[in-house]
């Protein structure tokens, strides 16, 4: 309960002020970074372009990014690949996670294998996956998708499995008293209570997948993608290459952030507070 406030409040104005206030700190600090960067690169013999130069040199790239082989198309290309591998990893990872979570035999059996495989760095899979898909129509494409899949699946399996094992006794007791059937237990208790864990796994998975795809595309440039884009600019080393690389790196970071937040947001929709 609150006693009526004395000063009149305009909700829109208040909201706007709030947003502006929250922006002050990031804007100030980012500007400082840009300023230092500009100062460091302002000498004539600096090979690195300053922020102003980067923007002027890449305006064309930004606006023409949707043309074929443009930067945005390459980014989209990478995203599609990640999407395919990731969805596969999510579906299979959750299924395996639930299976080994409820079954002690499977859990004990597969645990050592999973523990070993999950620590393998993504790029170590690249030669294997390339060989594996050599005979397929699009070997580089498929190898990339597989790499995403194999990278993202481990955290999803492990977290799902932990979630299933960690179902609080409070909930299983309810299921016991109500004598819920196996199916009812699965859908009414097991899945909802595991969801937060699954999404933790999914979030870690998407981060790893995005890390892996850029590196993979740099190494096998045949299928394009943002990694290949960066690599091509690096090998050609034209006048504006460094600026383009900087733009691409920044975009990769931004997309990574968006992906992470997107999965997080998806999770918050599903998971009850």
């Amino acid at each position: 309960m609150a006693t009526a406030s004395a000063r009149p409040a305009n909700p829109i104005v208040e909201k706007a002020t709030e947003i502006l206030q929250s922006l002050i700190a990031p804007v100030v600090c980012s500007s400082a970074v840009l300023l230092v960067w500009q100062l460091l690169c302002s000498s004539a013999d600096s090979k690195m372009p300053g922020p102003i130069k980067v923007i002027t040199q890449t305006i064309g790239t930004i606006t023409g990014g949707f043309a074929e082989n443009g930067i945005w198309m390459q980014l989209l290309n990478s995203l599609t690949r990640v999407g395919m591998g990731y969805v596969g990893a999510a579906v299979l990872g959750i299924a395996i996670g639930v299976a080994i979570g409820v079954n002690k035999f499977l859990r004990d059996g597969f645990d050592p294998l999973i523990q070993i495989l999950r620590t393998v760095p993504p790029l170590a899979w690249l030669p294997l996956s390339t060989i594996l898909f050599l005979q397929t129509p699009k070997p580089a494409e498929n190898a990339g998708i597989f790499l995403i899949f194999i990278t993202a699946i481990w955290p999803i399996i492990i977290n799902t499995c932990v979630g299933v094992q960690q179902i609080p006794k409070d909930y299983t007791n309810v299921a016991k008293v109500l004598r819920l059937s196996g199916k009812d237990f699965f859908f009414s208790i097991l899945i909802p209570s595991t969801v937060p864990y699954i999404f933790t796994g999914l979030r870690i998975g998407v981060g790893l997948a995005w890390l892996a795809i850029v590196a993979a595309e740099m190494l096998s440039t045949g299928a394009g993608g943002i990694g290949a884009y960066i690599w091509n600019e690096y090998t050609s080393m034209l006048d504006d290459s460094i600026s383009k690389i900087i733009l691409a790196v920044f975009s990769v970071g931004l997309v990574g952030l968006v992906l992470d937040r997107f999965v997080g947001w998806l999770g918050s929709l599903v998971v009850a507070e």
Binding site: M1, A2, T3, A4, S5, A6, A9, E14
Partner: peptide, 9 residues
């Protein structure tokens, strides 16, 4: 305490 909904005594 001032709150968004007004003062809270």
């Amino acid at each position: 305490y001032p709150t968004k909904k007004g003062d809270y005594t």
